[in-house]
Design a protein around this nucleic acid. Structure first.
Lengths: 340, 340
DNA sequence: GACTGGCACTCGTTACAGTCGAGTGCCAGC
DNA sequence: GCTGGCACTCGACTGTAACGAGTGCCAGTC
């Protein structure tokens, strides 16, 4: 593993040039474009070592070198600084997010902004319900046997679900039910509600019990277990930049993966605001994304995470710039949501 | 324009073969695969006429013929019957849609189903708010100067928006506001609410007036003007089927168009349940979609339309099958929503 | 011992020529 | 009006050759 400083500089130069030109880079071009202070022959020797160690490879014998996933990894970990954003970019972020009127709007603006700034596919998770708490529960009678249950979370998320009651109940009972569930659940984290919901049923007076039982089932089922997590996507057209060279010629697996919300959630939903995760090519556990890289982080007030966001692009991407942008956007969104 | 029956039969055969094989079809292959009862030479003469009239064309001099947009148009209008769905498909539709728990779920299932059955990109518009009526309005106090306004439409759609009040108001006033807006607006179509909202302000008692004014602004602005329309997408990965031959080599414009909700809405949002619209290639007003075809219709109970749905694919698509599927899915969804 | 210039070698790219064959248009004949 | 026959076109494919970017290796220099 004896990689001296110059070899690392060579690797850095190769990554930078390849990302910029999208073409295998040779020893001669390298010494011309960078001040390495040595001859092409020396660079060739260094390249041979780098190749042996698995950081770069040749697409074919008489071609220049291309970074491997491992090479990008080394570059990201040790050879690059996070690029500070340009003032123009900072302004773009602020301008874009100011004026959002509700949560949906914030999420949509964010994902579009991220796609535009990074020129990649952007993914933003809605604030996770599990980490939100209940602000209010509303029960709206639709008919004597049907209620619409609406839950408003402190993050601004609103979820609704139809409840089919086992028997007709009078309006006064709906009022009672509403009061009871609100007294019990408002303010508590959704991840902590199951025992509370259970208690609600046990404590309820006999004539409300059937309705409360049904209601609690729906509460548990829908609001906590089922589609509690949602995501927004933007910038899929960016996948076609750089011709078909990226993604080894086929967008299919990428597009398929992007449509699977579960997959995407797993990909970006676990990060914390303080860390930025970079997954490069092969490091990805999802087979369909073996030709892609993902940069993700969490957002939220302070260091608590409400959800994740990130971008997906070719392994040949501008990591320093992308990482900087993802972080910046996450921070702004976190602050914005903290104000609500 | 003297196209006799045989020439039309030839055109039909060309369209069918080309759709199936994706390769230019020649006179010899045509007589082999279809019982036209004439020789290749005769077919060639017919082809020459069809080409002159602009229904087919040759990619290059020594190749077979390919239908033009105009050819597909004639095929759709006069040469094809809507294919009845297979029992398996009918069952798939029913199985897929049964068990949907709320509107979001219905829409998501529908769009995925449509993408799967047609193997194209599917687009489903959420039930249009403009054509829905108000079932209930809820006001939830967030703080003394902030309310969360939640509107529930008869289609099951729920919209929310934060209201910043000009001055703090007591909880009793919120109750009054809630009662007033509900009395006035419940049951009316959203497209008819603006005068009613106006009246609400004018009729309100002095001490409620400031709050009511703000509230009415939000009501008009958000629920009626702004993002009143939403769509769901699925099956973008299907764009990559058939290699890059479809869409003249670049998915970019298509993907860009798909991300523009406004564009998509215009495309599918105007149809009525009784008619099915087919836009072929050039007929499309959106430049980005000149290489694609769109099959769309409306859905809703009876012949009133709640929204549109459709699929987008290459001009080289199985029109009879696609049309049948789009119609069938629209009918099922319409019925499903009518039951709510 | 590390770097360098030089050189032979590899191999993908491009250009060009030639062959093949699917498919056509046209025409004389039935 | 249809058909068989025939000459023609032109893209697809194959083979050959020249080109050149880029390499690995080695002997020479500091």
């Amino acid at each position: 593993m004896g990689l001296d400083d110059r070899k690392l500089a060579v690797l850095r130069a190769i990554v930078e040039d390849y990302v910029a030109t999208q073409e295998p880079v040779g020893s001669k071009a390298l010494v011309e474009r960078h001040q390495l202070g040595v001859s092409p022959a020396t660079v060739r020797n260094d390249m041979a070592v780098l190749e042996e160690e698995g950081y770069i490879r040749q697409p074919h014998t008489s071609a220049g070198r291309v970074p491997t996933d491992r090479g990008y990894r080394l570059f990201v970990d040790r050879l690059s600084r996070v690029k500070p954003l340009s003032p123009a970019e900072r302004r773009a972020i602020e301008r874009f997010l100011v004026g959002a009127v509700d949560l949906d709007d914030v999420v949509h603006r964010t994902v579009r902004l991220l796609a535009q700034l990074t020129r990649q596919v952007a993914v933003v998770q809605y604030p996770s319900l599990a980490r939100s708490s209940v602000r209010h529960l509303e029960l709206v009678p639709i008919s004597t046997t049907r209620l619409m249950l609406v839950m408003i979370a402190d993050t601004g998320r609103v979820e609704q679900r139809l409840v089919e009651l086992p028997a007709p109940i009078p309006v006064e009972d709906v009022t009672d039910l509403r009061r009871l569930v609100n007294e019990k659940l408002v303010g508590s984290r959704l991840s902590e509600t199951p025992p509370l919901v259970q208690a609600l049923v046990e404590e309820s007076v006999p004539h409300l019990r059937p309705a409360m039982t049904t209601l609690s089932t729906v509460l548990l089922e829908t609001l906590i277990e089922r589609h509690e997590e949602r995501i927004a996507l933007a910038g899929t057209a960016n996948l076609t930049r750089g011709g078909l060279l990226d993604f080894q010629g086929s967008l299919r697996p990428i597009l398929e993966a992007l449509e699977e919300e579960v997959v995407m959630l797993k990909l970006i939903g676990e990060a914390e605001p303080t860390t930025t995760r970079v997954l490069i090519g092969d490091e990805n556990e999802i087979d369909n994304l073996r030709a892609a890289s993902v940069v993700s982080t969490g957002y939220g007030p302070g260091s608590t995470s409400l959800g994740g966001l990130g971008v997906l692009g070719p392994t040949r991407m501008d990591y320093p710039g992308t990482i900087a942008t993802v972080r910046a956007v996450a921070r702004y969104v976190g602050e914005l949501l903290a104000q609500n």
